[in-house]
Structure formats: C-alpha cells, structure tokens
Design a protein around this nucleic acid. Sequence first.
RNA 1: GGGGAGAUACCGAAGUGGCCAAACGGGACGGACUGUAAAUCCGUUGGCACCGCCUUCAGAGGUUCGAAUCCUCUUCUCCCCA
Length: 409
Amino acid sequence: MSLKTDPLQAFPELRRLASDIVSEAELQQRLEKAAASGKRLRVKFGIDPTFTDVHVGHAVPIRVLRRFQDLGHLPVLILGDATARLGDPTGRNDQRPALSKEEVEANAATYLEQIGKVLRLDPDLCEIRRNSEWFGQMDFFDGLRLLSEGTIARLLERDDFQNRMAKSLPIHLHELVYPLMQGWDSVQVQADIEIGGNDQLFNLHMGRLLQERHGQRPQVCFTTPLLLGTDGRKMSKSYGNHLPLTAGAEDAFGKIMSLDDPSMEPWFRLATDLSEEQSRARLELHPRQAKVALAKEIVAWLHDSEAADRAAEEFERRFRRRELPSEIPQIRLPAGERPLANLLKEAGLATTTSEARRLVRQGGVKVDGQVEKNEIRPLAVPASGNGPLLQVGKRKIAQVCGEDESDLD
RNA sequence: GGGGAGAUACCGAAGUGGCCAAACGGGACGGACUGUAAAUCCGUUGGCACCGCCUUCAGAGGUUCGAAUCCUCUUCUCCCCA
C-alpha cells in the first residue's frame, strides 16, 4: 500500500472539512512522518448501530475518513455494538433504547451497507472492529479500573451534560461512562487520528487522555461541522429534514432543491467532492442553477450520474413546467365505489380518512387533474383498467386501477 | 433515608370539577406567492360510519350526575437536605 500523501498538499483540503483539529501541528507532523516512513495512519471512526438510517449528515465524518483512505491511510471503523446495547445518549436529549444483540447486529449490517456508499470496505483498505471484542472480555474489576480513569468533574464538563443539567434533564450513570468507553476504543485500536462530529470533541479528547496514560501517542482529534438539514435546522429524522443515503434519486433531488440558499455552501463543502474553487464557481450561478448543480452532484454520489440527469429532467418537468411525472405509481384496489376521502386513504395518499377529508376541504386534492373539494363524492374503481387519477399536494400522485391484472394498463 | 416539585397531544407549554378533543408557541401538512429556496399571508393539525359518535391529559383503582382537574396506590424524573 503506497501512500499518496503529499502532506503539504493534503493538509489544506482536510482543513477545509474540519470544525476542530487538536492539534493542527500534530496532524501535519503525522502526515509528514507517515509520508516519510510509508506507514499508514490509523484513522478511527466509531458508530453506534442504534438506528438504521444513515443520512448525509452522518456521512460527513465518514467522507473525511474516505479522504484519508484516498490518501492511502487506514480507516478503522469501530462498530459500537457494546455501547449500543446500553443505549446511545450521544448528544441526544431523548435517550435511545437499549437494544438486543440481534437488533444491534441487524443494524450493524445495514450500516455497513450504507457506509459502503462512502467508504471502500475491502479488508485491506479498511479495518472493521466491534468494541464488544474488548468490552466483552472485561470483567467487573476491569470495568471499575476503567472507571477509575475518569473523574466526575471532568466528565461533567461535557457540553451535552452541562446543557441537560441546566435544563434539569436526567443524566444516567452509564452515560458518564460512555466517553471513557469511546476513549478506551482508541487505546485498543491504537488510533493515530479520530474523526467525529463536532459534538464529539469531548469524547475524542478522552481518547487522547487514555492513550497517553497507557503509553501511547495521543490521537489527533478531528471533528467535522454539523451539516444542517434541508430546512436549516439540525439534520434529524425526527424533524423530517434529513436526506437518507438510501433516498431514491428523485426524492433526493427534490429534497436538495428545497434547501434554503445559505445552506448551499456547507452542502457543497461537506457533502460533495468538489474542490473549493469548483464549489465557488457553482455558487456564483443563479441560486436555482447552483442548487441544481448541487443536487446532481449528490444524486450522482448516492446513485450515478445518469440517475442524476434523469432526476433533474423529471424535476424540471414536474415542478417547473407543472406537468405530470413520467411515471405514475399505480395502486391496485378492489373494485367498487367509495367516497373520495376513503379512496385517498386506501390509496395510501393520506394516513387517515380524517386527514384525507381535511386535504380535500383545503383544496389540496385533484381528481383527474381537477381540484375536487367534495370529500364524499363517490368514485368508482373498475374491476380492471384505470380508475381515477389522484393527486395530493404537489408531490403525491397515484393512478388508481382495478385489481384484475390480466388487463395491462 | 427525609422533604418538596413534577409527568398534558409530534415538541414546548397553559389548564386545578362541567363552557376541554384540551389555550398559546414551534413543527408538520394544505393553499396563495415563488427559484417545490427563504420571507410573508390564509387555513388545518386525535379517530371514525363526521351536523353525531368513540378514544385521549404517566399507569391502575376510587369519589362524583360529571374528572386532565379531587382521593389512593404504582412507575418515572427533577430539586433540596442527610
């Protein structure tokens, strides 16, 4: 494995993706030393497989990992299977549930699959470890010894804890241990560098502390900025402003087009491979054009460039020219007549009939292209062939048709 | 171990016996305007067989014609003292 690192060149590119680096001098030193010795740096990144959707925001530190990988260094991916089973308190006010072994394994598999879109996971290019490997071996005494490495005052310094104390929210004992566990991971894998979101800075520091005490050279802490969601708030599934790596091309395209203008710069920087100059060139276009460029870039990453072009055309057709999409999903339903509201629910365009009624009353529903405000208007689904074409709002659309499949459209 | 405060809808937060399906704010959704951007404006926001009915205010019981509101027990959280 040859190192492609020209440390002087690599550094500014990395710096552009960083929130904090502790310390820049050390990072530079290590890059240079690695280049000189030809020895790869071990770049650690830990994830807790507590949920299944990896989104573009999560991907930011992983993209940095990929940069290091491209430079010839070795990503060390830690699956926090042990920590996940305790529940994941990191930076969340609501606690994640503790998971069973099976759930954790299932999540881990899903994770790796998604991370594969960002990082090359070939065994010689990437090391994958589970922290149960060492935590599973520890007995209670070993655990206590680890605990003795930290002090309460030190642990409580963490931002998240400070905030929760201020708000009188609960902090569980095991949460205090979590930074120590993460730090211990660094000792176990002898990390040279650890990557994390900037809310992880405290935990990364803990790794430095523990490594130093255990005779290792303390790791460089490298944190990435938070990529905000499509509405400018923190990206989170619960806000519905996230872009999952598994998003379909058109869906992803649409979500990016709904970004607010100020978000474009960070998105270009943190979610695409474009250089600073390339990004700037695009940002100088009309905001709409810039956004199209951004959306294409990201869809090409999540899928491929053909999918990106298609999504762009489709978007153009649907939302600029306000035409029907080229492919309309078909919903097969049993034949018979029912009120519009009920049909909407059956077709999956509304979650409840009450919601369907509201949508109709508010003029958000079109039947065969015409706004229909009568929620109890009876609509017939034929035994075969096409029934009514339903549209809800700007995005949801379905062609209702009969169940008899012998009839092809 | 002792004392005090608290648990309300997606979130925050009012409500302390009927006028409560529950104020208000945020979010979300629909509409107008647009660059499906932001900002702004209007509307909606438990369910259903929807002019009516049903299920909600941590959980289980109880008092009452009637409870989110009162009582008892349980679970959870916070604060102070030890």
